[in-house]
Design a protein around this nucleic acid. Sequence first.
DNA 1: TTGTAGGCGTTATCAT
DNA 2: ATGATAACGCCTACAA
Lengths: 322, 322
Amino acid sequence: MSKFEQIMLLSGYSRATVSRVINNSPNVNKETREKILQIMKQLDYAPNRNAVALSIGRTNQIGIVIVSLIEITISFLNHFIEAALRYGFQTIIYTSQGDKAKEMQAFEDLRSKRVDGLLIVTCVNDPGKLSAYGRYGPIISWQRMRKGQIPSISMDQGEGYRLGLEHLLAKGFTRIANIFGRSGSLNTRSRRLAYESTMKQQGLPVRADWYRYEVYGMLDGEEAWRSLSAMQEVPEAILCSNDYVAAGILNEARRQNLDIPEQLAIIGFDDTELSASLGITTIHNPIKEQAWNAFYHLWNQIGGESLEQSKLSFQLVERQTT
Amino acid sequence: MSKFEQIMLLSGYSRATVSRVINNSPNVNKETREKILQIMKQLDYAPNRNAVALSIGRTNQIGIVIVSLIEITISFLNHFIEAALRYGFQTIIYTSQGDKAKEMQAFEDLRSKRVDGLLIVTCVNDPGKLSAYGRYGPIISWQRMRKGQIPSISMDQGEGYRLGLEHLLAKGFTRIANIFGRSGSLNTRSRRLAYESTMKQQGLPVRADWYRYEVYGMLDGEEAWRSLSAMQEVPEAILCSNDYVAAGILNEARRQNLDIPEQLAIIGFDDTELSASLGITTIHNPIKEQAWNAFYHLWNQIGGESLEQSKLSFQLVERQTT
DNA sequence: TTGTAGGCGTTATCAT
DNA sequence: ATGATAACGCCTACAA
């Protein structure tokens, strides 16, 4: 016999009344409630979540789809998990390690009602295939998606990038190198586009020979600057794909005894703690707000409520490297 | 009507037979199975995990208790999640942000059968209080625990530390600084003990004035070396709490144009990718194996099977900083 | 304020 | 190989 039934028996009340007490329903006599609560405590009772989930048709669990936990996603994840928790949702991490089949497990779990919704941080399956799962529950993506598939809360990083570029130009730097991340990504494309269109518009030369791709971390950044500084013509300013890369470049430039920013101006991206402690000028990326917006998007569809998402924008944070 | 019942109706078979097909029971006529499978596909059927969980009394979900996702725990987490997945378990992340009440949610969820077991990575509640939850399901800790409470798969880092120290002594370095992490932790204590006992044993002076505490990341490491190198007497070798710290010290020392390792020998801890790419001598910490052992521990109690855990040990990895 | 009865979607134990 | 029936633990109209 389940503890629930023991409570019924011991208290002499019905299934419904016991349930009311468990769920803090106001329609219960004060003494009745106390008596039942007393017995619950005595029996060390805790509701079985599986039974609840089955009954109400919801698990209050959200899945996070991600290739693997890596540094640049941590901050976003922490914020998302906290947002979910605030509304009573737990988060299940689905790491695919790049395996398409493993990744599908998350979507199948949406179908099987293990999770009420899904957040895609990074995914390897074809978005076209995945979007079909939208019928089983809400899905939101942080990763930018080609339009018309899965909704995304990502922002066009080209806009942020342009802020950095204009800042450099205003300071009189015109010989500018660009350090990109993943070469085929939408973000890299819009960043490159922002650079090229702005330069052309100003009648300045576009230096494609100073492009570097697949640069992600601090060590990659150091390597990138070694390569650039060894060229015949050396850039006088650099726009980076993120703060880690900027930190690496700063390290390497300091090792070469360059004056920063006189001989080399550096701009990072994201405005992480790292850039703050190193004094790197960067573009503030509202990651926390994106995480909350992502949760709101899911919540609005799960709970039917309508929490308003905040309008987001990039912002230049000027420090000592420009 | 549930899809399950629709399948019963459309196929003309009973509840039991449909269930057998779903679970690949061998006791089903081949044609029967095909007919039912056909209908299942047609209805786009997927079993409801909540119903399954309620019925079998298990969720195949494991909770991870952690203060917050941070860099030094990522690798461990990725390995643990993968191990769990290999045995059909999903992982729920409980971040407490240092809040005791939030952390309790994980333990309450063990009680409520939302999770079948719990992994503690870092926790803020009193272990004595938490260990009472052991009756609701298996709990294992990565963080070292005072004995007699919650079982832990952690290793005594003092042993690894001693390896580094002996390596330095063998190379002729005797003026050695120690950079520690959390000042009250068990690991810090055993590291300090390893240093002090070995030095005394060799008749060498213990330099407590070269101790530094609460040093966790690369920037902390840079700061630590600035502080040490500004002293009247400067150490000629350093043992670090982790590879990030070692990398920071290396950076700062290079900035001061020191010859490494002639003027300053550096040893990291953990043997992360960072130490590999920077060529830092370090102590290999078998994190992956610890993660798998942690899962095995839980699995053995959940599944009743008995997977053997591997015996683990630290190992010195000599590179260019010693 | 309390109770009755049915439902949530499976698994599992017997029979047949 | 298949079926009938109960069990899993809770929620929720609806009725009283």
